[in-house]
Design a binder for these strands. Structure first.
Length: 213
DNA sequence: CAGTCGATTCACT
DNA sequence: GTGAATCGACTGA
C-alpha cells in the first residue's frame, strides 16, 4: 500500500546539494501550481540534471546571460526558458548560489486539477499525455516566462512550490542519456525516471536541424 | 547586425 | 518516420 503523500514543502537545503543527487531524489515529489482557478498538482516522474559550468549541454555552459541569470542565483528557484518559438520549459536551480546547476522537469502525472490541465492541453489524447514532455508539463501547469525566478521554497500562497510527496526507492529509478541534447552534452546518463511509469516521455536523440533552402 | 538553431510538439504520410 | 511551426537568444563578424 502507498502512504499518503507528504504535503510538507521541500526546504531550500534540499536543493542545495549536488545536482546529480537532487535530480533522482525529485522523482515522486509533488509540484503544486496555484492558479486563479485552483491548484494543479503534478507528481514528478522524469527529470534531467544539468551540471553547471562543466556541462556542455547546459544553458550555463558559456556563462551568465540575460536568459539564464536565474540559474546562477540561489537554489530552489524556478528557471523558465522559451524555446522553438513556442514552448516553455522549467527547471529547479540546485547547488550553492553561483554554481548554475539545475534540474529540467521533463514529465509527471497530474494528481490534482486535471480538469484545469486538460483545458491547457487540448491536443492530449489522454491524461497520461498531459505532462509527458517538458514543454507539455509547463503548458499543463500554465508556466511561462512570467514565473522565471519564482522561489519554489517560499512560504505562503506562492504560484509554484514543491512538496515532499512520496520519494521513490533507488531500485525504482531508471536512468539514461538526456533527451535531445547535442554533442558532448549527450553522453552523460543524467536523465532519471520512475521505472515503468506511463507518463514518462520517450527518448529521442538530438537531431540537428536542416538548413532552410 | 544577420545568420543560426534550439533541453519540442504536432500533424501528416 | 518526416517535416513544419515560430521567434528570440546567442554568436561571431
Amino acid at each position: 500500500m502507498i502512504a499518503t503523500p507528504d504535503r510538507t514543502p521541500l526546504a531550500r537545503a534540499f536543493f542545495d546539494r549536488p545536482v546529480l543527487e537532487v535530480a533522482p531524489d525529485l522523482l515522486g515529489r509533488l509540484l503544486v501550481r496555484t492558479t486563479p482557478d485552483g491548484p494543479i498538482t503534478l507528481r514528478l516522474t522524469e527529470v534531467e540534471a544539468y551540471d553547471g559550468p562543466n556541462d556542455p549541454g547546459s544553458h550555463a555552459y558559456r556563462g551568465r546571460t540575460a536568459r539564464n541569470g536565474v540559474m546562477f542565483g540561489p537554489p530552489g528557484h524556478v528557471y523558465v526558458y522559451f524555446t522553438y518559438g513556442m514552448w516553455f520549459c522549467m527547471n529547479l536551480v540546485c547547488g550553492p548560489e553561483g554554481e548554475s546547476s539545475a534540474v529540467l522537469l521533463r514529465a509527471g502525472e497530474i494528481v490534482e486539477g486535471a480538469e484545469l490541465a486538460r483545458k491547457r492541453r487540448l491536443s492530449a489524447r489522454n491524461d497520461m499525455e498531459l505532462a509527458k514532455g517538458p514543454a507539455r508539463l509547463a503548458t499543463a501547469l500554465g508556466v511561462d516566462r512570467a514565473l522565471d525566478g519564482t522561489d519554489a521554497c517560499a512560504a505562503g500562497d506562492t504560484p509554484l512550490r514543491v512538496l515532499a510527496g512520496t520519494p521513490v526507492t533507488p531500485d525504482q529509478v531508471g536512468n539514461g542519456p538526456r533527451t535531445g541534447v547535442a554533442g558532448d552534452g549527450g553522453v552523460h546518463p543524467w536523465r532519471f525516471w520512475i521505472a515503468n511509469d506511463p507518463t514518462v516521455s520517450p527518448y529521442r536523440a538530438h537531431v540537428p536541424r536542416r538548413r532552410r533552402s
